[in-house]
Design a protein around this nucleic acid. Structure first.
Lengths: 336, 336
DNA sequence: CTGAAAGCGCTAACAC
DNA sequence: GTGTTAGCGCTTTCAG
């Protein structure tokens, strides 16, 4: 493998000239530049990134930190697309993307410590679900920029984040149902401990009241996000005197169970009951009927997270900020 | 940030002594070691990984190469677990894990070239679906060890790989159905262009013939892996004179459609018809009924891929090898 | 517009 | 057991 010295020798110039050429310095004549570039190509030279990193005291590396043991931190299907968005910008900036698992320990320290202290990373992207105050403090102390995927309401510290515009998403869903003539809309799967769930509820109630419709507490069902809960709670709803003619599922897996309950009750979707859920394209398309969902551009979310991160890397004075990614409605078979 | 010199100065020793201490050389007296370690802790010193990498001409980095645009290269849910297994060993070895997308280009070269030429990576793990001869040649030329996730039947070159023991998996499934009293087992979703599908078919026919049962060509259905294909093909099967009493789905999404077709025909699962599919835990558990599957330990697969890779990194003379990861049957509601 | 030389932080051969 | 020193491959003042 040839190095910068070899190229310099072959070109009859100094290493500085080669270096300047590579880095496109304006102070090199076009002729020498051209000559050097052709020699570089001839010799199949590539700058050694590690040497460059050492001299510049930069790692040219960004870390995506996840909790692989925790299904909730990044749900499988989400992760891949988000990573795709991150990856896109990271390599565009000629950085590498490192993936590491929160719970890994090396040399008696957390991976994060190991990465940061060893100067292995210049920035971190991580899901809000694993972002504790301890991590925030550590990263801030070491001046490592980071961006949270998910709004960070549980933290007292200010933090940069990107999140889905859950409120708006729920609003869109609610308006859509109203537009299609549904009148009595339930909200299934509310979980007041989760930020995104609160936001979705806000959107739902907002859209209703804005349309002159009162929120009916009996139609707002608090429960976890499982198929079985969806089934049980929907069944219950259908046995009340006030039966809804549409339902918004605050979280996605619920809807599978809910649909089952509706079908078993002899009701037809979307004629008798309409349903809108959130995300998870795969489930939405595998179900019978396919599920109308509020869809999030996760690629975009990842991309924006990376963009925010690079702003912070390039200018450490950048202020923390929050960014909401807009949603869109994917009409499928559970709505008219 | 303190460096090795600072530590040496504080300890009143040379940098080599500190270096040897860090790297646990046996030729340092216990006393100095202890003293140095305590100073290291005091000063909160961490070795600069980039400097170390430069001196040792190693990047201490392994790359997971994927095709994020191609759903098939790593299907979403698969990827995460495989990565988890890889990640585990990679960090245990005190390496970092880089993730990169095949189609990214930098400085007019592919990411892979960029990573390899720039000495950014010491080894690569990638799915067989994106492993072309061109990539093999490139990696071999540059002496970069790599491991394929998936057997590489399409290549003439010898390559290290890990794969699911698809044949054995299908055998297990077939034997299970026979054991439970099913007698007329169909094989749905055969795709002769795919290695894993061929292997599964082999296992199926193997188990049948070993049990003294002839393979009935009419019960082997070649089709793609979609919900709709599963529905259509299953419906067809149920309308033939020779109706199966069990079905193995060679690929997973098929089973959703197949189940629908069975239910619509008024048949009861698992009493009238049994069904076993492959993988995809999430779908298998969301379906009504939940689907009995041949399950693969993807974490293990990732871990073994990394293990193979490190053998090659640590000893370049290591010969290429193939490794099959065993499967297990997850009994759910589609079988008696 | 180009070159010489110092230095990034660490390791390892060679001394003692 | 420990220290001295050269060097990994690059960038960047400072000179000219």
């Amino acid at each position: 493998m040839s190095n910068i010295k070899d190229v310099a020798k072959a070109a009859g110039v100094s290493t500085s000239t080669v270096s300047r050429t590579i880095n496109n310095s304006s102070s090199i004549s076009k002729e020498t530049k051209d000559r050097i570039f052709s020699i570089i190509k001839e010799m199949n030279y590539s700058p050694n990134s590690i040497a460059k990193a050492l001299t510049n005291s930069k790692s040219y590396t960004v870390t995506l930190l996840v909790d692989v043991e925790d299904e909730k931190s990044f749900q499988n299907p989400f992760f891949y697309e988000i990573m795709h968005g991150i990856e896109k910008l990271v390599y565009h900036k000629e950085f590498s993307l490192i993936v590491a698992n929160l719970n890994t320990t090396l040399k008696k320290q957390s991976v994060l410590e190991w990465l940061v202290k060893g100067k292995r990373t210049e920035g971190v992207i991580l899901p809000s679900s694993i972002l504790t105050s301890a991590i925030v403090e550590e990263l801030k102390r070491d001046h490592v920029p980071f961006v949270s995927i998910g709004e960070t309401t549980q933290l007292k510290e200010s933090v940069s984040w990107v999140d889905v515009d859950n409120k708006k998403g729920a609003e869109i869903a609610t308006y859509e149902l109203l537009d299609k003539g549904y009148k009595n809309i339930a909200f299934l799967g509310y979980d007041h401990t989760k930020n995104f769930s609160n936001r979705r509820y806000e959107g739902y109630s907002n859209a209703l009241t804005s349309s002159g419709i009162a929120v009916v507490p009996d139609l707002v069902i608090e429960c976890g996000n499982t198929k079985d809960e969806g089934y049980t709670q929907m069944k219950k709803l259908l046995n009340e005197k006030n039966v809804p003619d549409a339902v918004i599922c605050a979280d996605n897996i619920l809807s599978i169970g809910a649909i089952k309950a509706i079908q078993e009750a002899g009701l037809v979707i979307p004629e008798n009951i309409g349903l809108i859920s959130f995300d998870n394209q795969q489930i939405a398309e595998l179900s019978y009927p396919t599920i109308t969902t509020v869809h999030v551009d996760l690629y975009e979310m990842g991309y924006q997270a990376a963009k925010l991160l690079f702003e912070m890397i390039e200018d450490p004075e950048t202020r923390d900020q929050g960014l909401l990614i807009s949603t869109s409605l994917e009409n499928r078979q559970t709505t008219k």
